[in-house]
């Protein structure tokens, strides 16, 4: 099994963090359900072209945060995450994506009204469809 995640070479955050966040998103959005077996750190490393040092660190952090659990000799599995935690994380994911979009607009010297107008246009396009 491979996971629908990828490493972005242009992002400055460390690779283990990118992996961690993407798996977390898959779990809180319920694309990965509780009890689902995750690929081994070795299989994930070879899928992404990174080292097992990196994938192990991502898994360790996710385990500490209670999203996954490693059972020795059996593998790594998705944990049950409570609803409150899920909605907090969903909010954070959406919030961060919107914030990044605004930062890019700022870099390109968009004014506040211009950004607002653009957002409203996109919202209309997406929700009317």
């Amino acid at each position: 099994m491979s996971l629908p995640i990828e490493i972005n070479e242009e992002r400055q955050e460390p690779i283990y963090h990118q992996i961690e966040e993407q798996i977390m998103t898959l779990i809180v959005s319920e694309h990965l359900l509780a009890e689902t077996a995750l690929p081994s750190i070795r299989a994930l490393a070879s899928q992404l072209g990174c080292s097992v040092i990196t994938t192990r660190r991502a898994y360790q952090n996710l385990e500490q945060r209670g999203y996954i659990k490693t059972v020795r000799g059996k593998g790594t599995f998705v944990q049950q995450v409570d609803t409150k935690e899920k909605s907090t994380q969903k909010f954070k994911t959406v919030h961060d994506a919107a914030k990044r979009a605004v930062q890019i607009a700022k870099q390109h010297e968009y004014s506040e009204p211009e950004v607002k107008e653009l957002f409203l246009k996109i919202i209309k396009e997406e929700y009317d469809a």
Binding site: I15, C50, S51, T54
Partner: peptide
């Protein structure tokens, strides 16, 4: 050297 360190 660790591979990912090289890429960093």
């Amino acid at each position: 050297v660790e591979k990912d360190e090289l890429q960093r």
